[in-house]
Design a protein around this nucleic acid. Structure first.
Lengths: 396, 396
DNA sequence: GCATTAAATTTGAAAATCAAATTAAATTGA
DNA sequence: TCAATTTAATTTGATTTTCAAATTTAATGC
């Protein structure tokens, strides 16, 4: 067997500590089914390796309890420094976190262009990482892993970008290129996937094994978590929720096809219908349109309503296909509020197959710009964790 | 750890033998990464238990090879007898297979009604099983596992039927009830899931880890296989492809909602549009309508065409969401040929997100009535296998 | 300060894996 | 025909790993 038993044990315990920390050895033994003796042995290894640390148990536990007190274990934050970044339209946002997942710094950078060649991108990212790490007096080479989120079609396992709106050419071995330039391990994934990872690790997806995250920015994205694992599809282009068809021969989409959901709910679609020519940043115009709708302007209201109903229909289809525990509507922008309205969620409930059991939860999660970068960092954190454990076996 | 290492080894080897049989020990060692020594030990156990058997290697391998010849291993068919059944509208079809998965008998039974109370169903199934096993001179109690496919909302892990069109009441512990009546282990699942299992085990899904099966009978069903595992959703009601919405406020569906795919492609939908009152079995009328369409009748053609385009749109959405390797369009009935047409498949290709990689394969698999029952048996086979291995640990 | 309690560790036995050595069963060639 | 060769399968013995039970540790209660 390629993965030996001890490695499985180490992985199980480290994951459990991460999820439940702080937690005592005896509780780890109960939760994982690994004997106390083995928990002692393995946690000793992890302590020696510096991946976890002992902390005094919370006083609330200690009070009025006889016997030897428990000693809690937790992830040792200082074990590794992890960076994450998201390339947006005209900006890069970065976060730095410790091995515990605590954010320790962030950085934002405006870009002067939307499309980069890889060398220029590497330089920009290198400079940004230097600035980011500099904020806490550290250096880029102190970073154990760097996660990068980028729009487009990405093969995450290879760090290979088939196509991205942010790159000037196709089929780039982006992770390898950046690793050469930055001299630290780099992990690349599609940005929508990273939001799903962020929700799983830090957000509303905590504790759920099967859920869907739908993101609304300029386009409509989606991430799928099945059995606690991100599902990426077989060609790396699944989860194109924005391009599911909601109308036969419907409205024309940016992608050239007709009837895509995006062609009904995206900014440009709303402006087009209202007969307003969109500019580079149409956000204020969209905001105005939606404000009109709220005030009762019949044309604006009709446009916003239809977008909401189309959106609900798309989401109901997701539920009918996947039957997830939870749907998270995630986004940073406020202008999509018409899609987050109670009527929309009600419409979803009315469009799914009815059974005795309760329908899936739908929650709205509005967050700041760093969420994307946090997801990228969480992805890197997973990978760094994995490598740290694999490394232990080697020099054991 | 609750599952010990030896059990994992046994499971790995038995599965590998099932997939690759006949196969020699040395090849098992290479494929699984388990050492030759351990393969010898574990296969000896499996041989002793009677789950596998040795067979002479194929002569083609033997020719012109020096050294000690390999001894192939294969599943021992006589180890267990497995039954599977599918309850259709007015019939039950059953198959009997050996532990190798080879069909050894089949039986078909017409029903005089579509809805049963559980006691009556148990009696009918008991009689059918007796007739089925009688065909090869065996008895019901010789059967190690009985898989049953039934339409509706089923919690397969509990053998619990939330609702089924074939049962006169909701919330039935069907597996437990049938086990009491038949005195053999019973496993129940939704019929669409079972087709996916059948395709995986015996059909076009062999060798694929991520694929979708769409079935067309009176309704439209779907089964999803992700990572070699059937995905059942969290409430047991996922994969309701027939009730995904393809039109906002569209045609009225049997389920009471509007715009469901089924309301455009099912038999009753076609007849309704053609303004023909449907009877209990509308198949001949549908057949006539489609024949008219083929002959060029404009009304009939328009109806059939729209059904095909709606169907393509629904399938394209599946691809955009899942990005599977393969889509299998499976069905027994010929009257759905307009949905299997080349134009439909072309329309799917035109509606999915375009990337450099090839789109997923779409294959059409027309099969006889036993496919459902075969899937039920395959599901039972999985479970019996599992139990046989678990049993070994107990009395080892 | 001694009994009690409960966590953590240590100990020693049992289980399981694997590399290396051995045995088994064939072919090749003299 | 029989030794040499080749390759599969098994056996052997060392090593790893786990776990139950015994022991130790560190607290509270009286």
């Amino acid at each position: 067997m390629s993965v030996n038993q001890r490695e499985i044990g180490r992985h199980t315990l480290l994951s459990e500590i991460r999820r439940q920390q702080p937690i005592a050895r005896i509780n780890l033994s109960e939760r994982t089914g690994i004997s106390r003796a083995t928990v002692t042995t393995i946690t000793a290894e992890l302590l020696k390796e510096g991946l976890i640390e002992e902390v005094a148990s919370a006083p609330s536990d200690k009070d009025a309890r006889r016997g030897r007190p428990t000693v809690d274990l937790k992830i040792r934050g200082e074990a590794h420094l992890i960076a994450g970044a998201k390339i947006s339209n005209l900006a890069i946002s970065l976060v730095l976190m410790d091995f515990e997942g605590k954010q320790v710094a962030e950085h934002e950078l405006a870009l002067d262009k939307t499309v980069f060649d890889t060398d220029a991108l590497a330089i920009v990212l290198g400079d940004s990482l230097a600035a980011l790490t500099g904020k806490i007096g550290r250096h880029v080479t102190d970073v154990s892993g760097f996660g990068l989120g980028i729009a487009g079609i990405v093969d995450a396992s290879q760090g290979f970008v088939h196509w991205s709106p942010s790159l000037d050419r196709r089929n780039v071995e982006l992770a390898r290129l950046l690793e050469q330039h930055l001299s630290i391990p780099v992990f690349v994934d599609n940005d929508a996937n990273l939001v799903a990872i962020a929700e799983q690790a830090f957000g509303r997806g905590q504790g759920y094994s099967d859920f869907i995250v739908v993101t609304i920015e300029s386009g409509v994205g989606m991430g799928i978590v099945i059995g606690n694992e991100l599902y990426r599809g077989t060609r790396g282009c699944g989860a194109e929720f924005g391009h599911t068809k909601v109308h036969l021969d419907g409205a024309l989409c940016r992608c050239g096809q007709r009837g895509c959901l995006e062609a009904y709910v995206a900014d440009y679609a709303l402006l087009r219908e209202a007969n307003i020519a969109g500019s580079a940043d149409g956000a204020p115009q969209v905001e105005a349109l939606l404000e009109d709708a709220r005030r009762g302007d019949p044309v604006a209201k009709s446009i916003a309503d239809r977008a909401g109903r189309m959106f609900a229909m798309g989401l109901a289809n997701l539920v009918n296909i996947f039957d997830p525990e939870l749907i998270i509507l995630a986004g940073a922008q406020m202008q999509s509020s018409h899609l987050y309205a109670e009527e929309v969620i009600e419409a979803i409930r009315g469009s799914i197959v009815q059974i005795d059991k309760a329908p899936p939860e739908v929650v709205i999660h509005k967050w700041g710009n760093t969420m994307w970068a946090l997801g990228a960092a969480a992805y890197a954190l997973d990978n760094v964790s994995e490598r740290a454990l694999a490394g232990m076996a080697a020099h054991a």
